[in-house]
Amino acid sequence: MKRTLAVVGAAALVCSLGAAPARAGADNPHAASGSYVALGDSLAAGYQPGLGDNKTGGYVGGVYANLRSKYRGAKLVNLACSGETTTTMVGGGRCDYPGGATQLQTAVDTIKAEKGKVRLITLDIGANDVQTCVARAGAIDAACLQAGMVAVANNTKRIVNDLRAAAGPKTQIVLLNYYNPFLVFWLTGNQPLAQVSVQLQAQLSGLIAQAAASGDAKVADVATAFRSTDWTPTASGVPTNVAAICALTWMCSKTDIHANDAGYVLMASTVNPLVVGPIRPATASVG
């Protein structure tokens, strides 16, 4: 399939995105404050190719704006680490934190120091445990993938339960599952791998859901928001899920897995209804 079809399909999907980014409303002088602790990998860090991290942007920025529309004094603590896996989040070695701590330990210490004032914790973690198991040439390392899934299953439950123990029962914890950048293989002629990637995404989403349930956390369904299983052809013939990846990430234009601005807006809109209600939530629909 020619790349030109990707451009056409992506353009069609972008034109159908009908909502503005999440943003804060007027300050409420009577609203309480509190903290929002953002955790995870490069998506939580707001990474954009060529620009690097933006820890007040990305989907975290949209969630924070929504939170501040209700609680004007809320502060953001973004501890995310680009490239973080569930293993490094627990054991360290990827990013530097005070005293040589891990992201998880730093988060637990931060939450405890807030003494019950943390309103919201968001977490996206696990993609880096498995995404390197898929080569650019389109081959899957099965042993790598199995080991990655086991790590996600074990480590994510520990992470969520440690966060819940530190935060207590009243703090909202929201885990995000992931969109599927490997749908782009449909455009390079490897349609079987694109289809298999949907099954692998479902497996990863299931592990994230299990971890969330173990710690009384919610799941923001990014996979569904990105229409990950919708193979309905667009007007150009590109499947809806493939066109969404082209429209909402940098995969088709820069071969980069990260979300673009529209993608981050859509991610924020999956979290916001689970917290204090949606503020102009983004939707991805194809006419």
Rank of each mutant, 00 (worst) to 15 (best):
A147F: 04
K157A: 06
D96N: 14
L123H: 08
S253R: 11
L187F: 05
A101H: 11
L175P: 13
A12I: 13
V276Y: 15
C133E: 06
D124Q: 03
P98M: 08
P169A: 07
S82G: 14
S16H: 12
I279D: 14
Y64D: 13
G52L: 15
V60F: 08
V174K: 04
S205L: 00
S33D: 02
A19C: 12
L145P: 04
A211L: 12
I245W: 00
I125K: 03
A153S: 15
T249Y: 12
L176E: 14
A194R: 00
L187E: 08
G92K: 07
R136C: 00
A165G: 07
P233C: 01
K2R: 05
Q172W: 03
L51I: 12
T156Y: 04
V7K: 10
W186K: 01
V7H: 11
W231P: 05
Q146P: 02
Y264R: 13
V150N: 14
M149N: 02
M251L: 12
G168Q: 06
A217L: 07
H30K: 05
G287Y: 04
G91Y: 01
W186I: 04
P273T: 03
S253W: 08
W186E: 00
S69Q: 04
T87N: 08
V14N: 08
G277T: 05
S16D: 06
Y264V: 12
L176Q: 15
L5Y: 15
S214H: 07
K112N: 11
D216A: 11
T86I: 15
G93W: 02
D162H: 13
Y36L: 11
V184N: 09
Y64W: 09
V60A: 05
A24C: 08
A166N: 12
Y179L: 08
A101V: 07
T283K: 11
G215N: 13
V63N: 05
L176Y: 02
S228Y: 05
S16L: 08
M149K: 06
N54G: 06
V60M: 10
Q191R: 11
W186N: 01
Y71G: 04
V160C: 02
A282N: 14
P21A: 10
Q105D: 15
T188S: 09
I208H: 12
N154D: 03
A44P: 10
T240G: 02
G237H: 05
T132M: 02
V152L: 04
D162R: 14
A45S: 11
Y59M: 13
